[in-house]
Amino acid sequence: MGPTISMPGAVTPDARVVAGLQAVTDRMPKPAGATDRDQVRSLLGAPDAFEVAFDLADGGRRETLIRYETWHYFELESAFEFADGDLIGNMPADDVPPLAILPRQYDPSMFRADMTVADVKKLVAAPDSLMRIDAPSELGVKATAYYGEQLMVAFDESGLVLVETYPLQGGRSEQ
């Protein structure tokens, strides 16, 4: 008679392990806030850098404006993406060097779709330092960007469509 092979059955979690696990999860900080976005903030604080984009729903087929946000946490090398406050994605993000200077003077909540260039200029220390750049014509959109003080904002014919903050670091940025 050949050797007997015994197959292991399904693993049943030990009650003590489950209880221990529950104790660990009970000690975890509880997120606070009405939206996923607020809850991420309650756990991780304000983002190191962020993008805010205002876009029409269904790729422009509906008039409803959606506020998309991407929050970067460099220490975690991670980015969280929100649509109107709902968490829709969590993605890996590239880190920046230890001595990079982060755009902590800005917070996503400072920016709204109905803002004008004048409103944005009130948020920066030296408004005249913002550089104006028009979108390349081949892109087929009439858009203008203002750039400076670790901030880029873009307006099209409908108003503010994009906000991006960025860290400063040594060396030349990748092209």
Partner: peptide, 10 residues
């Protein structure tokens, strides 16, 4: 050469 670095998704 302090300059702006892209915030990039991996």
């Amino acid at each position: 050469d302090l300059t702006g670095s892209d915030v990039k998704i991996n």
